[in-house]
Amino acid sequence: MTAEAAEKLPEFFDLDGEFARSNVQEVLDKLDRELVGLAPVKQRIREIAALLLVDKARRTLGLETEPPTLHMSFTGNPGTGKTTVALRMAEILKNLGYIRQGHMVSVTRDDLVGQYIGHTAPKTREVIKKAMGGVLFIDEAYYLYKPENERDYGQEAIEILLQVMENNRDDLVVILAGYANRMEIFFQSNPGFRSRIAHHIDFPDYSEGELLNIAKLMVEKQQYKLTSEAEKVLKDYIPRRMRQPHFANARSVRNAIDRAKLRQANRLFGSKNRTKLTKADLTTIEAEDLLQSRVFNAVNPDK
């Protein structure tokens, strides 16, 4: 740097002011409000936000900075909020000026891997081009690698991805997501991926209390209300559902609420006063809407 340029540099950097300007607090608050639990995830997002701001401060004061690598891997069981957090991540990175557009492109193996020789590369590049300036979210990333078939085209997609993750670091952020144990195998067989990903974030399962809060938030968001009995039933429902096979955290809760809505609609059709329904009738979910669920069927709970 020339002496003249160095003179023009400011002496201070207002970290608070920059933080306020970036609207990150707003996004973090929204994250806290709308996403229940996930303490380690939120902590890591806060750290990333701090890192990017300090990085900006260093750049402003003329210190040497290298743009940090922000490729991430999200591991966790089904329904723990990986996709939702990825969406938020795009928003946060946009506010911090790390990515330019702030959109997220969500893909799976099918979108990246072709069906015949020479099909994969253009397909993968097409997806990468769409995601540029934003976040590329690869759901169930371990399907890209199929060790049992050495001629599988997934390897080609992986190579292109690795190249872009290295050369176009300023242009897009890649987030890989999947279940923890299978992602572990995936990283073991693709060491290039592990070293290019700076942030491995683990999404913990939700506790009973958190799931209940999630259910309440969902109901509220869809403009429904639970009667106090219905709430009690829901509290009873969640641990029962958790013990069942194929439990998918928040997704199972959402499905339960969707089914309750279905039964509510059916109940309204069968009700006597169906010719003069009030707003309250349309928004209330009664205990019986939830009680009909198969998990309360004690005789054969697995059915």
């Binding site: 330019r100 959109h103 081009k129 769409k130 540029m132 300023d170």
Partner: peptide, 17 residues
């Protein structure tokens, strides 16, 4: 050179090509 890019959001994608 390549297929037309209909839904790119960022100039970097076109510069890549």
């Amino acid at each position: 050179w390549c297929q037309p890019m209909f839904d790119t959001k960022d100039p970097a994608a076109v510069m890549l090509e």
